Computed example of a mutant assay.
Amino acid sequence: MLILFQQLLNALALGGAYSLVALGLTLVYGVMKIPNFAHGSLYMVGAYVTWALLTDFGVPYFLALGLAAVALGLLAMLLERLVFYPLRGSPGVSPMIAAIGVLFFLEACVQLIWGPDFKLLNSPVTGIITFAGLSLTGQRLLMIVASVLVMLALFYFLKRTTTGATIEAMAQNREGARLVGIPVGRVASLTFFISGALAAVAAALYAPTSLVSPSMGEIMNLKVFAIIVLGGMGSVPGAIVGAFLLAFAEIFGGVFVGANFADVVGFAVLVIVLAIRPQGLFGRTA
């Protein structure tokens, strides 16, 4: 039973990080109706920016996290203006191909600047918290608390502010939002900013528990796309539920099946759910 609760805590930490990345991708898809295959590269660059701020400039961790979030938000806005905005009237496959190009371009830039070697991002929160026979590292506790706070802040922004309401209006009907006077271009840029910032926060929280590498964006890309398909394309609650479901499948699959098959178990759950409910857990039927 202790093993069960111990892995439950680990799954909550991992699910929190997955949720933040998936929420950014979900918002962009909801507004632009484009699967942004460059999203994983924003997560990867966010990890490297955080690492550089900590190691090269000696910036305190939480300040580095905030600066990385702003930097990646601005980078995502720049990509929206330079890549996606000019392609807004193009066939559906063109933005996807452009996004894949951005993914490999950013990966090449990171290797050019910081090299192809793995980087170690030391955890800013040391120590292990023990209670009732369970133990949790300070970094994983930070992942749980910070991800919940960020998700609550995002929910408040979307549901209780006028700007958030314009994002939801565009997600429901982009043309209708334009006709009632909503500045769709500005809202699209803001949505990309939020998605980049969320990816950077997730990277800064999760990177100290793993290694930072140029290929980490490709891996995260696969997982977050699995998450949003599992939850239902464009569904914010679905992205959160899908993220935790994938995290639970990976963690418990690693325990009961083997660490080498943890990812296989996660994607097996995806296949099973979609076989039963093709539109995803929170997706709407056509």
Rank of each mutant, 00 (worst) to 15 (best):
V125H: 05
I128T: 14
G280C: 07
L42V: 11
T161L: 12
L42Y: 05
P95I: 09
G238I: 07
G73E: 11
G253Q: 10
L134V: 09
I167Q: 12
L179I: 10
S135N: 13
A239M: 09
I128V: 14
A52F: 09
L274T: 07
A197C: 02
V102N: 09
L75E: 11
L25T: 04
V28I: 15
A202Q: 02
L63H: 13
G280V: 12
L9W: 08
V265H: 02
P116C: 05
A268W: 04
V184D: 10
A108G: 07
N260Q: 15
E175G: 00
W114S: 15
A197I: 01
T161V: 07
F256W: 15
L20C: 07
A177Y: 06
A22Y: 02
A239H: 02
G231E: 05
L67W: 11
P183K: 14
T166I: 04
R160H: 08
L2S: 14
I3F: 03
Y48N: 04
Q7P: 00
T209I: 08
D117F: 09
P124V: 03
L112V: 11
P183W: 07
V265Q: 10
A262F: 00
T162E: 09
A188I: 01
I251E: 02
A268Y: 04
L141D: 09
L106G: 00
I113G: 05
R174M: 13
V257W: 10
D56T: 11
V148C: 04
S19T: 00
F192M: 13
A207Q: 12
S195M: 09
V59E: 02
E168P: 00
E80L: 03
L54S: 10
I182M: 05
K223M: 08
N260F: 04
P91C: 11
V45P: 00
A268E: 11
G66S: 07
A204F: 03
A188S: 13
A259D: 08
W114H: 13
L2I: 14
T209E: 11
I272A: 05
R174C: 10
G176M: 15
T166G: 07
M32R: 11
G164I: 09
G196V: 03
H39Y: 06
V269P: 00
L78S: 08
R284M: 08
F105A: 15
Q111P: 00
I240E: 06
G30D: 06
F248Y: 01
V59W: 08
L54D: 11
L42G: 03
E107T: 05
V93I: 15
P124N: 03
T162V: 09
A249I: 08
E250D: 11
I194A: 12
P35G: 11
L20P: 04
L20M: 13
